[in-house]
């Protein structure tokens, strides 16, 4: 059981990162983006392409770092994949959502559009990389033995630290940087932001870029932890939304906790249920939250982060 909780914390940290970025985007673009899971998949696959196709043909030393299963290629691929995924998201916004904003479409149209984008991304992943599972590496690394018979793979410690670092980085960015403050202002009161001289269209670009870069990281970390597959984005959708809603949608700090809770509950549920039921477990939590505390654990009675 403790082992499952430990696994749950790792999965939870990945979900937290995904849910934080989902809710960040939600707070500014003001619609539920059903393509968010698929942005995670884009990041994971771009990293796979870089590590296993591009870098493999270049002479990049495969030096690994101590007990970690990956090395320099992955550390190079990570920022590049973040950048590429950000570009994908910004281009999608320009092609699909910006014209909708310009025409003052109702929220429902954005939501339907995002579902189309989600499936289109997935179709492209299938077309380019095929339906098979992929692994970043075949290398096996021995797990570390901790007290209470808990085994943790070194990769998992890296994942946890990376997620925490990313979320902390986002926090500092939102609190300290000028753009971060402007993003918070736009989420709080878009009209007043425009009146203050903030070009909210630029804020949209920043939002998509940051949201997608964080989503890409979450996707890659999930790939390191398990494997990458074309449906990963779709399967992540329910846990991500459950985490975001549990934390109070639009509240990134709530999403952090929400992701942890969902991850742990999902892992622990495998003691009683088939692992394939994990999305359904997330769904049940989602429904319970909607019934009991629709504003989430920490509420979000007002806009803004």
């Amino acid at each position: 059981m403790i082992a499952l909780v430990v696994d749950g914390i790792i999965l939870g940290s990945i979900l937290s990162l995904g849910a934080v970025s989902l809710t960040l985007v939600y707070g500014i673009v003001r619609f539920a983006n059903f393509a968010h899971g698929d942005l995670m998949a884009v990041g994971a696959y771009v990293a796979f392409f870089l590590v296993n196709t591009v870098f493999a043909t270049l002479d990049i030393p495969i030096a690994t770092f101590g007990p970690l299963s990956f090395g320099l290629p992955m550390l190079l691929a990570l920022p590049l994949a973040m950048l590429m995924t950000a570009v994908v998201a910004v281009v999608v916004d320009r092609l699909v959502f910006r014209p909708m904003r310009a025409r003052r479409y109702a929220t429902v149209m954005f939501v339907i559009g995002s579902l189309a984008v989600a499936f289109a991304i997935r179709a492209l992943v299938f077309i380019i990389w095929g339906p098979e599972f992929h692994f970043y590496t075949q290398a096996l690394r021995p797990a570390l033995k901790l007290p209470f018979d808990v085994r943790v793979k070194p990769d998992q410690i890296f994942i946890l630290l990376a997620c925490l670092a990313m979320v902390a980085g986002l926090y500092l960015f939102l609190q300290r940087s000028k753009i971060g403050q402007a993003l918070r202002a736009t989420a709080d009161n878009p009209d007043l932001a425009r009146i203050s001289g903030i070009n909210t269209e630029h804020m949209m670009i920043w939002t998509w870029a940051i949201g997608a870069a964080l989503a890409a990281t979450a996707g890659i970390l999930l790939g390191i932890d398990s494997q990458i597959r074309p449906e990963m984005g779709w399967n992540l959708l329910l846990p991500l939304f459950a985490a975001a809603i549990l934390g109070g949608i639009g509240n990134p700090y709530g999403a952090l906790v929400g992701g942890m809770v969902i991850g742990i509950v999902q892992q622990v549920s495998t003691a009683f249920l088939l692992p394939t039921y994990k999305p359904a477990v997330a769904f049940v939590i989602l429904i319970l939250v909607l019934l009991i505390r629709p504003r989430g654990l920490f509420g979000s009675e007002q806009r803004g982060f």
Binding site: K178, S196, G304
Partner: peptide
């Protein structure tokens, strides 16, 4: 400059941050 009738502050930001947003174009 314009002060709207309602919703004319960023409620979740501090006073200082509100002023910073006012000077967003001229830090």
């Amino acid at each position: 400059s314009y002060v709207p009738q309602a919703d004319n502050t960023f409620l979740s930001l501090t006073v200082q941050e509100n002023l910073a947003m006012g000077a967003f174009l001229r830090p």
